[in-house]
Design a binder for these strands. Structure first.
Lengths: 345, 345
DNA sequence: TTGTACGCGTTATCAT
DNA sequence: ATGATAACGCGTACAA
């Protein structure tokens, strides 16, 4: 690739050694080099449009200035935004960022990790799928700097950046009961990823607190593969029966999309008949006729911290900062109590 | 990085030369190698958990098995989906994909291109910003395989994959007039990127055809930086005055989001008072109370073709396939004529 | 200022 | 048949 304008070529043309060219082009030993030859070398380099072969450089210096990032699915707006922030943040520290999507698939994840490691990335920012402990552990044994993103494993001592999902769920449910909802349901994932457990447990704790007794029928668990009909079925179940939910917390933006679409086609009125809250913001939430109250993850902060933590971990692998950020409940129309209260009068 | 398990280490442990280890691990000269020593080498390699240093390999073979992709903004759902498809498609051919966002900024774009080229990617898939001709040309002079994505430059002979934006706009406007709309407006970008020109020109041609005379006030151009208040202002202008638009074509999903949000907060009824069509699908369009008719780009096909074209161009740089794909108008509720017709009766 | 070893894997050539 | 040697790709950095 390229036309092969190497140091050697420049050296030949200038009648000097390749080493000297390297020094000049990198501004090293600048005081010990004849300024005239330096000028000549620079001129030739520019004329030949030289640019360094980062491959060779990395091989020698053992540094690629590259960060590897693995998210669940880069086509998810949430991931896409986060990735973008990391990209910018990394660049500010001189790093190029390489991405991959794991699809929450352990095999795919491991393969991606391998690819990145073999390409000698300087560090990794990872959203590992369930069961990835051994893979992470091996990376640590190889002394590869890494930060877990959005999730972590209690059994491992790693750097991580997460949000307090438990508190976020808890606050959301509290908001719903405080605004007069009595049968708060939740549709979320049946997965053993800790951050998803937290969302579920925060919900359960809040329901328990506000209702004394828990109606298990109001918690619906669906597979992480986001099967549309399964999710729609869960919603229908929540809305039927003897005690239909009058409020629902959606465990992700994918779940929310599917459910809101169905709600749209039913004759339910939000927020009058049903209040809804969604985990994670996406643009679509503003387009629902009743703008959706949502749990806002501090994306900028997450991306910033992820890169900063990685930089620290790259300096010293035993340095494993654990950052827990708080999410914010953004109240919009979809949980407005007024409609409901009016009807009660 | 790594623990430094190199061929050399394995060779030492096995009491053979590094070259032999390389042959064994790559299944080369397999017939000329003692099977017992081969087994021993494989065993040691596995025991030491060896994996090849792709940096060194690439340096030697001059092949990185990497494709570089530059889009405008990876956090845009449209780009994110496309990127995901390219990622999968590339993987099927054994390529890792590296992404970057240019923000439609020429300087950023050039910097990204440089980074990728210096890292010796095997080829590039690019959505170049306006004015990038010289950069592309230089890449071609360096014999670097590339495919333009979603846009192209008539002055350059490159491979490209685009959709027929002119026809897409044309069809959209036709659909609107066929369903009884008389004052079809458009809000799109004031940019000299050809694909955006095409969108505009397709609109103009269709309006001209259906109306005989053109009312320039129904075409609003906004900056590509997606300034919210500018776009909102454009919409308000379209909806006011002596001949307010009764249908609008939005030139992108960003424009659509901003406008639909505003329409939501006004007391306009879609499709009764106003019909809308949007370029590019995103999930949000289904969540609008009146699901939005949109111009669907064949993302899968675009991604597939982009990778295929690149592979061809990598085989022979003078091979520059030009693929023009047709978009599809997906008619939903937002352009339904019934509401309007009922009112007319 | 320059020669040269080095990082690491590949492969053509040479030696048993 | 089996296996070793050495040059190579390209930039870096130390010794000369």
């Amino acid at each position: 690739m390229g036309k092969g304008v190497s140091l050697k070529v420049i050296a030949a043309k200038a009648g000097v050694s390749a080493a000297l060219v390297s020094y000049v082009l990198n501004n090293k030993k600048t005081d010990r080099i004849n300024k005239i030859t330096a000028q000549k070398i620079l001129a030739i380099a520019k004329e030949l449009n030289y640019s360094t072969n980062e491959l060779a450089k990395s091989l020698k210096t053992n540094k690629t200035n590259t960060i590897g990032v693995i998210v669940a699915d880069i086509s998810n707006p949430f991931s896409a935004s986060l990735v973008r922030i990391i990209e910018n943040q990394g660049e500010q520290s001189g790093y190029t960022t390489v991405f991959g999507s794991s699809d929450e698939d352990l095999v795919k994840f491991e393969k991606l990790v391998h690819t990145l490691v073999n390409r000698k990335v300087d560090g990794l920012i990872l959203s590992p799928p369930a069961g990835a402990e051994k893979i992470i552990l091996r990376l640590q044994q190889q002394d590869i700097p890494l930060v877990l993103l959005d999730r972590y494993f209690p059994s491992l001592k790693t750097a991580y950046v997460i949000i307090d999902n438990y508190a976020a769920s808890f606050e959301a449910v509290n908001h719903l009961s405080a605004t007069g909802r009595n049968r708060v349901g939740m549709i979320t994932y049946d997965a053993d990823l800790l951050h998803l457990q937290d969302r579920k447990n925060g919900y359960l704790a809040a329901v328990k607190k506000t209702k004394k007794r828990l109606d298990n029928n109001h918690l619906k668990l669906v597979g992480i593969e986001n099967n549309v009909s399964k999710i729609e079925e869960a919603l229908k179940e929540l809305l039927s029966g003897k005690a239909p939910a009058d409020a629902i917390l959606f465990g992700s933006n994918k779940i929310a999309l599917i459910c809101l679409r169905l709600i749209n086609s039913l004759s339910l009125i939000v927020p009058d008949d049903l209040a809804v809250i969604c985990f994670d913001y996406t643009e679509m939430l503003d387009l629902f006729y009743s703008p959706v109250t949502y749990i806002k993850q501090p994306l900028e902060a997450i991306g910033y911290q992820a890169v900063q933590c990685l930089l620290q971990n790259m300096g010293d692998t035993t340095n494993t900062p654990a950052i827990v950020l708080q999410a914010e409940l953004v109240v919009q129309e979809s949980t407005n109590a007024s409609g409901k209260l009016l009807r009660k009068k």
